[in-house]
């Protein structure tokens, strides 16, 4: 029987399959998630968000911030981690398992040009004043890639839909099953994490939930992070990317 492990972390379901120490994998996920959550004021990410000055950061957060800058570049600015003020404005102020809070759409605003407001150096980072970031999907994709590397040669890591298949694995994508070998995959959708007319995918050009004619995009790419960034970019751009 194939070993597998399922648990809740980062507000979503995580599943690990295959060889390797899956329990250690779960501990790693929880450890990174605790550092980068925006829902805990004492987390490493919250301290960076609050500082508006150079802050010492862990190697993992440094890599995530560099990945965020790369995602911004790859997506032509459509994947921008500096949309946190808009996420708060639409009521996504706490884990959605606790429900959204009242929306104040007048407080939503266009996201800043990320490379100008986020500076990353070796072991430290700085955000411009009044800029706050949420690592959201980028973290899940990045973590799926890193964890698959850590666990072994035949493992499938699925962190809330951002997954990486190391070795060959059958995965359901958009109602069909595909065999993925050493590939990442992700689905971005406005159907999930939705309440009323609002959803969690912010268009950084408007600061509001993306108005798009595409409801759902699935991407298979060389890494889970690439898949996540590409899926979100296509969704927000309405398929024009």
């Amino acid at each position: 029987m194939r070993p597998e492990l399922h648990f809740r972390a980062m507000g979503t379901t995580c599943s690990l399959f295959g060889d390797g120490d899956l329990a250690e994998g779960e501990r790693w996920v929880r450890s990174i998630a605790a550092r980068i959550t925006r829902f805990d004021e004492s987390s490493e990410l919250s301290r960076l968000n609050a500082a508006a000055a150079w802050v010492d950061i862990s190697p993992e957060l440094e890599q995530l911030l560099r990945a965020s800058l790369l995602a911004f570049e790859m997506s032509g600015g459509l994947v921008n981690v500096a949309v946190l003020p808009s996420m708060l404005a639409i009521g996504y102020t706490r884990p959605l398992t606790q429900g959204p809070t009242a929306a104040h759409l007048d407080q939503a605003h266009t996201a800043p040009f990320l490379p100008e407001v986020l500076k990353v150096a070796r072991g430290r980072a700085r955000l411009a004043p009044n800029v706050r970031i949420d690592l959201g999907g980028i973290a899940k994709g990045w973590m799926a890639d890193r964890l698959a590397e850590r666990l072994g040669d035949h493992v499938l890591v699925n962190l809330g839909g951002d997954l990486y298949a190391r070795g060959e694995w059958p995965v359901a994508i958009a109602c069909k099953t595909y065999l993925l070998r050493n590939l990442g995959a992700a689905t971005s959708s406005t159907r999930k994490r939705r309440w009323g007319d609002l959803h969690h995918l912010i268009d950084p050009r408007t600061g509001l939930p993306a108005t798009t004619r595409v409801e759902e995009v699935s991407v298979v790419a060389e890494t889970a992070l690439d898949a996540e960034v590409l899926a979100k970019t296509v969704l927000i751009s309405g398929g024009a990317a």
């Binding site: 399959f17 694995w169 059958p170 099953t177 994490r193």
Partner: peptide
């Protein structure tokens, strides 16, 4: 990508849908 992705007629172990 083309060579590494193949449709399959087997039961998937997981999906890209978040829950």
């Amino acid at each position: 990508l083309s060579s590494s992705v193949r449709p399959a007629d087997v039961q998937p172990v997981t999906s890209t849908y978040a829950s």
